[in-house]
Design a protein around this nucleic acid. Structure first.
Lengths: 253, 253
DNA sequence: ATTGATCTGCTTGTCAGACAACTTTTGCCG
DNA sequence: CGGCAAAAGTTGTCTGACAAGCAGATCAAT
């Protein structure tokens, strides 16, 4: 049963408070290093209990906006909000334009990872990719769901770069688009040949990586990502102005 | 007075609880969609008050591990922990190897951003870059601190891509290395010519971007990042374009 | 018997007050 | 003036309570 998206945000008191304080910090009303008003003051000001204020501050602490010291107070961090990167706001909005931007970011790191994987892969890395490829082959043959294997394949490439930070970021970006892989591996996707087409792209990527061909791996990844973008209805010509002479390569007139 | 880094984590009760539950989720003890034990149960199990449990769960909610519904309970998210990306663990560790990985990720997005900026920049974007460049020029001439202008320059390039997600990510990555810009703009940095060298790199990037030369902008950014990496003692041999079969773009001269 | 509404227990959200642990300021005394 | 102890203030934790909302059980009606 499909989950109904809640249109109206439930009025969470603590969320209201934390968002307000977050705005204060963003607007510079509360500069880095400055001490926040006391919990008692805030609770009086917002007209809520101290528990709500504590919950709001707890959220701000988790997101790296503030830090609190017992007995002293809560202070704005030196680089507020820079402890973690989140694009939930972009994706949750379901704004097509925002999704284009996020997908472009994914495109950038995926293509770079393919090139690095071609240079640095080890035998076990290749084995992981091959195993994921085979599972997708089986899914294509059986018209089954290969979304998980698809995900695993991209993660295996990221792992082959030997860069855990890059690997974690690609995994992060991939999860943002996990739902978008459904149309590819659905019954309609199989019927329309989308699954087979995606698999062909994966095969090209794998061969280039296995051959140590960094440029080829990047190009194969680029094509694969462009196809995926088109399946999502993303207008790729805006970021791919030269279909014949690809992409970011040569200088424009 | 310099702040002493606290070596021993102060025993935060709520942090202990949240870390434990986070581990449960990571280990699969609590699978996605599963309902957490009730707050009353948890508080009894951990031997703490319900307020502490609520604070711990509040943190888990902020980090996207769980979501709670009033009257029903708290449930593990479908993709726990994938709401935000953080590499604080890597950087905080001050592990040189980890920093190499993070810097490589920054290298990937910065070079891509330079190429995109060359294609998409507007006049105001160029003005912002030019303004930051001038401030750095003044800093070089006066042997002053140009770290902020340096940061602003890179952010201006990111803004010129017209991709807010990419912009935010570059800003995020840049802040991770804000401290690393100190040796460039310190007195020793000026004396050793590091500030002037960095500024020359910025100038090359700006000219290529202003000319709409995507490949040139990418290459200038690559060189700039390689120099910065070398100053940090990072091995960049995999970043160099391959002599015969160049890295991504077209044949280099 | 199935369906529908209602009821009851349970869980989270919020409130209030209190004490403990700790920090900062104040004020006294040498 | 300097050092030290008391005091005031702040966050961390505990306790108890009630409101708001949910899920399953109960029960009535067709």
């Amino acid at each position: 049963m499909p989950q109904i998206a809640r249109l109206t945000r439930p009025s969470q008191l603590s969320e209201t408070v934390s968002k307000t304080i977050e705005q204060w910090i963003a607007d510079g009303v509360l500069a880095p290093g400055v001490k926040l008003p006391t919990e008692k003051t805030l609770s009086a000001e917002f007209g809520v209990s101290r528990a709500v204020v504590r919950e709001a501050i707890s959220r701000l602490k988790a997101e790296g906006y503030v830090a609190s010291r017992q007995g002293a107070g809560a202070f704005v961090e030196a680089r507020p909000g820079q402890a973690s990167f989140r694009l939930a706001d972009d994706v949750d909005a379901a704004d097509p334009a925002a999704m284009v931007h996020v997908f472009e970011l994914r495109y950038i790191v995926e293509t770079a990872a393919a090139a690095l994987a071609a240079r640095r892969h080890s035998a076990p890395d290749l084995a992981r990719m091959r195993e994921a490829l085979q599972r997708m082959d089986q899914a294509v043959a059986a018209c089954a769901d290969g979304a998980q294997a698809d995900d695993d394949f991209h993660v295996a490439i990221a792992a082959a770069t030997g860069n855990p930070a890059l690997q974690r970021f690609i995994r992060f970006m991939g999860h943002q688009f996990f739902d978008s892989r459904v149309p590819t591996w659905s019954a309609q996707g199989h019927a329309a040949g989308r699954a087979a087409a995606a698999q062909a792209g994966h095969q090209r990527m794998f061969e280039a990586i296995a051959a140590g061909d960094a440029a080829g791996a990047r190009e194969a990844a680029r094509q694969h990502m462009v196809e995926a973008a088109r399946r999502l209805g993303i207008d790729t010509k805006d970021w791919d102005p030269a279909p014949q002479a690809p992409w970011e390569e040569e200088a424009l007139p």
